Amino acid sequence: MLNGNVLIVEDQPNFRRGLMKMMEGGRLGWNVAGEAANGHDALTMLDQVRPDLVLTDIRMPVMDGLEFVGHLRQKYPELLVVIITAYKNFEYAQAAVRHGVLDLLVKPCKEEDVRQVLSKAADRFIQRRKQLLPGHHEGPQPGSVVVLNQSRAKELEAQLMSAILTGQAEVLEQLLHQRIAELSGIPEAELKLQALSLTLALQATIQKQFQTDRFPSADSGVSDRMPQPHWKAEEVLVWVKEQVLSFMRLFMQWQASSKQDNVIERAMQYVEEHYHEECRLTDLADYVHMNPSYFSVLFKKTTGDSFTSYVTRLRMDKAALLLRNTDMRIFEIACAVGFDEPNYFTNVFKQQFRMSPKEYRKIPVEEAVSPLST
């Protein structure tokens, strides 16, 4: 059996071990190549482990699953990803699915649910590997041209979205110029198909990345008109270049708008006012009218800290003030700074201060350190 390698990213040790046991000895078509307790650790392992599949939880300390997938997609746009989530994070997981994950597992999940998802991933992995084997040829089937065209559009869309996540116009422009160069010299019939694929990718990217109240698709400049049957190769190339120029203009306007509106400052102010609530990256991205993955990258680029780490450290700073200046109980402080579970709050506090909340409360004021100052 053709087994693939899987990386498991899950902060709950028991659940992580349970997944590993199910795949022990290469069962279910997968070999466990590595494990990590958060997205940050998983990112450092990708090049070494080179997984074919990633199973990742959504809610984790240090770096959450959605932010991790956003970074992962920049380097490995085609990597198979399965999201693990809880019911209360279901909308969060849906956002991740829109960014190209294969499937999701909803906790609490049965063993049969896990088996079905892993089987689906194994089938997809085997299908990809077979396509790379020498001598693998399949005759054209009815509708195969359309399927190939859609597949090419999806591939281009993933590349465009990954380039946009860098936030650098020259990277995106270089990618598009490369695609135009590849169109030159190919047969006219194939040229029209590839031009259609590129345009579909541009339109899908606009809808997912740029479409906000400020930039409705009607103003994008990328035409819905497809290449006409009577067009010559030169006409198709001119048309494609016009679509690319319109796309780049929209990208520059959208990027400039993000800077002019002080997006990150507004986001940080929102966190300051809502840290005691369930402060999710997707909520903030929606608040500032921005794609979640791009917002995550822009936030870290601007602040030097991931969104999850920033929120956690802010909450710990508020908790430290309450411990120092009030007689509130630990569970009351946990609730006041946005934690539903006191035990989880205590664990996070220990990670930040290397001591428990009770121990912190006892130390002299001059020895107390804020996590935001470290």
Rank of each mutant, 00 (worst) to 15 (best):
Q228S: 14
D261E: 15
H230M: 10
V236P: 01
K301Y: 09
E235P: 01
W254C: 02
H276G: 05
H230K: 13
Q255W: 10
A218S: 12
I206K: 00
A267E: 02
T303M: 06
T308G: 08
Y310P: 01
H274A: 03
Q255D: 15
I206N: 00
P227G: 07
F299N: 00
G304D: 08
F210L: 07
Q255K: 14
K232C: 04
G221E: 01
S220P: 04
G304M: 08
K241V: 08
S217P: 01
S293D: 13
T205Y: 01
E235M: 08
I264E: 00
H274N: 11
V244R: 02
Y270W: 11
E242G: 12
E272N: 15
F247I: 02
T282D: 13
D283A: 15
R225W: 11
V222Q: 02
T302G: 02
P229Q: 06
A204W: 05
S258M: 09
G304E: 07
V240L: 05
M268F: 06
V236R: 03
V236G: 03
Q209D: 12
L202Q: 03
F299C: 00
Q211W: 05
T303L: 06
Q209G: 05
D261M: 11
K259Y: 14
L237P: 04
V236T: 06
V236I: 09
S293A: 15
I206L: 10
Y294H: 10
D219H: 10
S293P: 03
L200Y: 07
M248G: 06
Y294F: 13
S246F: 02
W231M: 11
K241R: 14
E235L: 08
W231N: 09
L298S: 03
D213C: 06
D219C: 09
H230D: 14
T212A: 10
L298Q: 07
E278T: 15
P216K: 04
S258W: 09
D261V: 07
Q209I: 14
L281M: 12
S296R: 01
H230V: 11
Y310N: 02
T212I: 09
L202H: 00
F247E: 00
L245M: 15
V263A: 11
S246G: 09
E265T: 12
P292Y: 05
K259L: 13
V236Q: 03
V236L: 05
S220F: 03
T308I: 08
D219A: 11
M248I: 11
M226Y: 11
F247T: 01
S293V: 09
